[in-house]
Simulated assay, not measured.
Amino acid sequence: MRILHTSDWHIGRTFHGHPTLDALTSVLDALVEQVRTARVDLVIVAGDVFDSAAPSAACYPVLSRTLGALVDAGARVIVTSGNHDSAARLGFQSGLLRPEITVLTDPAAVGTPVTVSDEHGPVHVYGIPYLEPAIVRHLWQGVELRSQAQTMTHALDLVRADLAARGGRSVVAAHCFAAGVEATPGVEREIRQGGLDVVPLSAFDGPDYVALGHIHGRQQLSERVRYAGAPLHYSFGEGDKPRGSWLIDLDASGLRSVEWMPLPVPRPLVTLRGPLDDLLADERFDGHGEHWVRAEYTDPTPQPDPMRRLQERFPWCATVVHLPAGTRADDAEGYARRVRAARDDAEVIDAFLSHVREGEGASDAERSLIREVLDAHRVSEAHA
């Protein structure tokens, strides 16, 4: 059996205020073509189908059109819900969908598989929706479920118990944060406290393949436990991570091979760093006019209207950050010492400017203005 593992579509997500529906649609169209060309039997979408528990009306046609196209390309489709999805909203229409499409959002059904057969016999697919311990613990009385690790381990124990009775090959689709992954800062919206929601790799023992969602970059935790990542880049922190999905082949004895299937990147991401004048004019940045741009300008002091000026050269400049070059010579303790050592208010102000400007104090013109203002203030106080 040939299976395509994808996840984290995040339909409806914006990128620095820009909509992504059109870009995502084009990438999902490419995924459908991969399914057709590779003769995929089953597509697994491992959670975070939508970016919000209450997606806009424009998001639903993207999902329904893509699911239908995957079936038309010759595949069965199994979808689970993630932490961004509303399980109720995603699952309510499951009974109305084409028989080749199954949406698994009910935690109570975790130990009951969807069985798909090929020439070697049955393959049992266990969908595990995102499990919030406080919400699902009432389903399993007498079991301590205070963390993601406990909850996912219990869910997989149910899978293993059912599989022991059924026999045959098996695949699990789940949405969680597994131990050993490297999360991209600012991307995965983690809700970890003291590591309690990190699921140990041993929890996934048993199935022939575990298709995970939640992490936006592809990751391989073992030969049989993997994250596919998101089909689009949703953060500049992801810019160097490839987009795609995993193509899994099962033979009569279980997992035979896994291959990475790259997806197109509609608009590459790039981070450009340098003085603002260089970013605006240097020819080494000429090739980024059609890229999403994060600009980090290194001038000692903030510059006026940098976003507008940069967008004249880079229309898709999405964010601008002021990161002065060099290392701050004056840390908090050094700044405090300079303030204590200051002989007058003018030196206090000069110490502050040097601190916030990475060592560059007041200019001669600024010192003159500072003295003038302070003198005027003293005169005003004397006549009060």
Score class of each variant (00 low, 15 high):
347 E>T: 03
181 V>Q: 00
27 V>T: 12
361 G>D: 10
262 P>S: 02
289 G>T: 12
252 A>G: 11
39 R>W: 11
236 F>I: 12
236 F>W: 07
278 D>H: 05
20 T>A: 13
171 V>A: 06
278 D>S: 06
64 S>I: 12
342 A>M: 02
276 L>P: 12
36 R>H: 03
384 A>I: 10
87 A>D: 14
291 H>E: 11
88 A>H: 09
82 G>Y: 10
258 V>G: 05
243 R>I: 08
182 E>S: 15
340 R>V: 04
117 S>A: 15
261 M>N: 06
308 R>P: 00
276 L>M: 15
282 D>H: 09
89 R>H: 12
252 A>K: 02
203 A>L: 13
377 H>Y: 15
315 P>S: 04
128 I>P: 06
164 A>V: 01
277 D>R: 13
117 S>K: 14
124 H>K: 04
349 I>N: 00
347 E>K: 01
183 A>H: 09
168 G>C: 05
11 I>F: 09
97 L>M: 02
1 M>G: 01
266 P>T: 02
317 C>R: 01
59 C>Q: 12
231 P>G: 04
103 V>N: 00
126 Y>C: 01
159 V>G: 01
61 P>L: 01
354 S>F: 03
13 R>P: 08
50 F>G: 07
328 R>E: 14
4 L>I: 03
290 E>K: 15
245 S>V: 09
152 M>C: 15
113 P>G: 02
124 H>S: 00
375 D>H: 12
28 L>A: 05
188 E>G: 03
65 R>T: 15
364 D>S: 14
162 D>H: 04
43 V>C: 14
131 L>M: 00
348 V>A: 06
242 P>S: 07
146 R>A: 12
180 G>P: 05
217 G>Y: 13
239 G>F: 10
148 Q>C: 11
